[in-house]
Amino acid sequence: MSSAIPLRLYVNGDRYEIAVEPRRTLADALREDCGLTGTHLGCEHGVCGACTVLVDGQPVRSCLMFAVQAEDTSVRTVEGLAPDEERLHPVQQAFWENHGLQCGFCTPGFLVLIAGYLEEHPDAEEAELREVLSSNLCRCTGYQNILTSTMCAARAMRGEP
């Protein structure tokens, strides 16, 4: 059962050579083997979305995916959103400016979900975005500020004022 197998993960552009049991989830591998604890676990059964990461650009519940399934993919987590120590990703910046987070536990999942979605659907409108957001749970904010943040981020990413 504890037969660890070697695994190479590419996360946020970095290469991680780790060894995991086949049953280890991608979330646990990211958090404990790669030390990237920004990806959170809120339910471990695929509902809350706190564990959302991008696998080859697609939002994925990392609690429902085995680490070994991520072999040879490119994984992006919340730690990989901001371009550097000084600047934030437009979605992060919008969350800050619009009070899109309180406790911040659900936040990485939302940020990654939204960043991934807006990169593919830059012109998404409010109703569509609300529906996208409904795939994740937040217990603190009541969602309105998350939606406002998302729309601001969409505008910023389109280069609008």
Binding site: T37, G38, L41, G104
Partner: peptide
């Protein structure tokens, strides 16, 4: 005023209970 807690949390650099390893 903008929250002083946010920059850390937004970067995924917070330390929640499970993050102490």
């Amino acid at each position: 005023a903008l929250r002083i807690e946010d920059p850390v949390l937004l970067r995924g650099a917070g330390r929640f209970a499970a993050d102490t390893i």
